[in-house]
Design a protein around this nucleic acid. Structure first.
Lengths: 364, 364
DNA sequence: GGATGTTTTCTAAGCGCATAGAAATCTCCG
DNA sequence: CGGAGATTTCTATGCGCTTAGAAAACATCC
């Protein structure tokens, strides 16, 4: 566990040069059978393990892709940090689905897609994320060790990304192309939300709809809002000028929104949420206040995360092809790395409306 | 995207030596403010991005942990491979929960724990898995690039692991210690299965129980079987000598098992499965044949994967603290790397019986 | 001003492997 | 047996960065 043997050691023991040792592993056909065996025997005897870093440095490639995620600070639970302790049992009466509210989320499923494609093509995947605690932005560390990088939007400043993209291909996940040097994989946010909204209007006869979203003007959310507006306009219904928000619009603020809507006596027929992570706690909050969902008010989401199926009522949503997005991203990166002349790709994938209970449809 | 600038370029532009450039990034306090700014400006101007490989090589550490998973061959779906295509819509009438049968599974949740702990401690995570298609065993590639390695049992020959463990700490997940040089993180398989079996006997009055497991004598499964046997023995009930199996015991063979049990007219009161992944398709198979679960026969699992909650009836199981296992593994690796004198750790975590519908308990 | 102590910067030597291109060895035939 | 050609092995260098230890620059004080 200290400092392993190197090619030099193996070469010496086998009585050959280091080049021959290297060839034995990289281009076996160029080495005579007998010497190959000798080298392998020596390697075996010494417990030789090649250094990936040295190889990567010498060859100019690493065989790994990277993915950079959000800062998980909101998931950090010092109590369950690795080490001796065991996580304390959940407090009695706590939501038994609580676990699934934090995993797997949207990013996890996309990441899985990337992992699968990496696996198919013989690459490994390096995972990292922002960390406001340690203060380190691992992005550069990762970028320096991979042949391609997938990033979720708004996790890394654009300048940094375009800097990195001069060295290795970079694909941005779920953000429309900014006409820059990055690759993009997106979904049809507007069309999906349009279809969902139209369903609420035509199938359930809802007239008074509101769109709930974080204040944060994430462009994906904006596009969804546009789709929402368009559907209302087409149906000749009044079109809200902006989403309703309370607090910062983070999932935790769904509670505040529910309270505000009830207090203001302006509860609509339906609340179309910018994403599932907001819809789920909102439903909780409404139910807790005695508001029937979907009886009194329908609530819908966007993304199609697992927790939406565990919710009661089950969440009506628009499902993104998350795994496929990840696979596509990885494929673009690998192709882009292997053929440096490829221009920036921008691929948009279709979404699918998933009708479940929370809009008034029958259970699945 | 071709070949980026190096420390040499930055040094030249800033009018200093490469050492100063390096210091500017690694030990800023050792560089005069003015020169530091000059270097940073030069780096900025050149779009300098440090090479992780070179750094890893020079420093003898990479700041990354690795995790090696199973071969995902059974998940490979050429149709959805990255690239132009989009996955075809699921065939009509297919199980709407099918997606959740493959993700997230046990390994995914453990891996997430590792990722979280890595994130906490400022490490990145490198993910890889066997791949019988490309034939490459990526294990050595990964091992050469990380400071510590977590592996799932039976994914890598023990010799290889102990070889690797001479260089970097290695922790084996969910396998009892073999008294070797590896670290281990396990759970109390026997106790968990014992508790579950006892529940079936005392709470539901079941007398005729069978244990269904893959033929593959994975030691975790064996320990669970022992717990099962012990519980029966203590209750004075007949103790099966071996698990029942049909085919190879893979999840797909649950169908065959159901058929065989029915054909043989030897359907027990309860079928205790070695893990959830087997219990779920078994329940499907039984229901499809008109057997009431849990009315006619109770079925239980082990692991506590997400799909068990989506199953109808919901699956009674023994939940492993998967995230915690991952965090613990990562913590061991990091500690072990930072202090090479630490002896092999072996940590066992408790499990929890989760009573749901498939054993006859009321829904959650 | 010069001696002494501190900072700051530089020189030089790796880290472990890959791979051109040269050198050595082997094969095959006339 | 000699030599052309093919095969195998070696020499030499570079990949980009870190970091001792030396050198230089600066600060302080008598």
């Amino acid at each position: 566990m200290v400092k392993g043997p190197t090619v030099y050691d193996v070469a010496e023991l086998a009585g050959v040069s280091i080049a021959t040792v290297s060839f034995t592993f990289r281009q076996p056909h160029r080495v005579r059978q007998s010497t190959r065996e000798a080298v392998l025997a020596a390697a075996q005897a010494l417990n030789y393990l090649p250094s990936g870093n040295a190889r990567g440095l010498a060859r100019g490639r690493t065989g790994a892709l990277g993915i950079y995620s959000f800062d998980f600070y909101f998931l950090d639970d010092p109590a369950s940090a690795g080490g001796a302790g065991t996580r304390a049992a959940a407090p009695a009466g706590s939501d038994p689905n609580a676990d699934y509210r934090v995993f797997p989320l949207y990013v996890d499923e996309v990441q899985r897609g990337v992992a699968l494609e990496c696996w198919r093509r013989g690459y490994t995947l390096m995972v990292g994320g922002g960390n406001r605690t340690t203060g380190r932005t691992a992005i550069a560390d990762i970028a320096g060790q991979v042949d391609g990088l997938a990033v979720f939007p708004r996790t890394v400043p654009v300048e940094v990304l375009s800097l990195i993209s001069r060295r290795i291909p970079v694909v941005e996940l779920s953000e429309p192309s900014h006409d820059d040097s990055l690759h993009h994989v997106t979904v049809d946010n507007a069309a999906g939300m349009h279809a969902l909204t139209t369903h609420l209007i035509t199938a359930h006869g809802l007239r008074d709809l509101q769109f709930a979203a974080p204040r944060d003007p994430w462009s994906d959310f904006q596009l969804r809002f546009r789709g929402f507006q368009a559907a209302l306009a087409e149906a000749g219904l009044p079109v809200p000028e902006r989403p309703v928000t309370e607090g910062d619009g983070a999932p935790q603020s769904a509670e505040a929104l529910a309270a505000a809507l009830l207090a203001g006596g302006r509860l609509p027929d339906g609340i179309v949420c910018a994403h599932d992570e907001y819809a789920l706690p909102l439903i909780d909050a409404l139910l807790r206040r005695g508001v029937d969902v979907p009886g009194r008010v329908a609530v819908t989401g966007f993304d199609g995360i697992v927790a939406g199926r565990l919710q009661r009522p089950q969440l009506t949503t628009v499902r993104q092809p998350m795994e496929q997005m990840g696979r596509t991203a990885a494929a673009i990166l690998i192709d882009g790395f292997e053929d440096r002349t490829l221009p920036p790709q921008s691929r948009q994938l279709p979404v699918e409306v998933v009708l479940r209970e929370s809009c008034g449809c029958p259970p699945a």
